[in-house]
Amino acid sequence: MSLILDVDHVGKTFVQGGLLSRREVEAVRDVSFSLDAERPEILSVVGESGSGKSTLAAMVLGRLVPTRGRILFEGGDVAAIRSRAGRRAFMARVQPVLQNPFEAFNPLKRVDRYLFATAANFVVGGGRTRAAIEERVDRALVEVGLTLAEVRGRFPHELSGGQLQRTAIARALIPEPRLLVADEPVSMVDASLRMAIVNLFGALRDRLGLSIIYITHDLATAYYISDRILIMRKGEVVERGAARAVLDNPQHPYSIALKQAVLTPDFG
């Protein structure tokens, strides 16, 4: 069995304060999980603010270096990547989807520049001609239900939150990555557009065989879309397993409290 991602007893400690008032904060404590290469899946990491779920995502993306433990991506230690070429090769395989689509694009710049830059920087072979790049960008946009014609030349404020988030996902798809790390990708998207994004994640898993780490505080969408789930609290994983089994019948007191706090709009 080969693993795409192997998170092995990972911890992260932040140091706060100055020389005299030094204080250590343990944001992530001894977290392990892995993603199987043969079985693409959506893994939800659920927790409240301060649970360490975003720190975990940053470590998987190589933006933060773990204090303890290792993160192996396709067998190589993520923290050991130093060279520019190595970083680039890693980014071609692991891409992020950010929380707030309105913040994820520079408001002073056209949205398509990120798409073209990604295609020009990561797609090797097949020529880097203008036509080849545009073709690649358009293919990624079609994958998320948009077209290049809709996005070309647009500024972020001219697109809706849903369109922007789908553009961001399309950009992440251009290098044909194996893993997407999505940190609260729908929390800032309007209700009428939210399920389009969530459904898109399911479609990408099924169609492209993409593994997705879905970081969220929303148990209902995690239940709806994910295969496996990790419930985190204060940096630790308190419960894990098949998403529906865990949420249908949570065991840990914190998971139970979390599930009970979900507001259920049921009137029979």
Binding site: E103, F105, N106, Y114, A117
Partner: peptide, 13 residues
């Protein structure tokens, strides 16, 4: 720290 900087980094800029 703005998200669009992260977006630029992962666009390979």
């Amino acid at each position: 720290t703005r998200p669009f900087t992260t977006q630029s980094v992962y666009s390979g800029m």
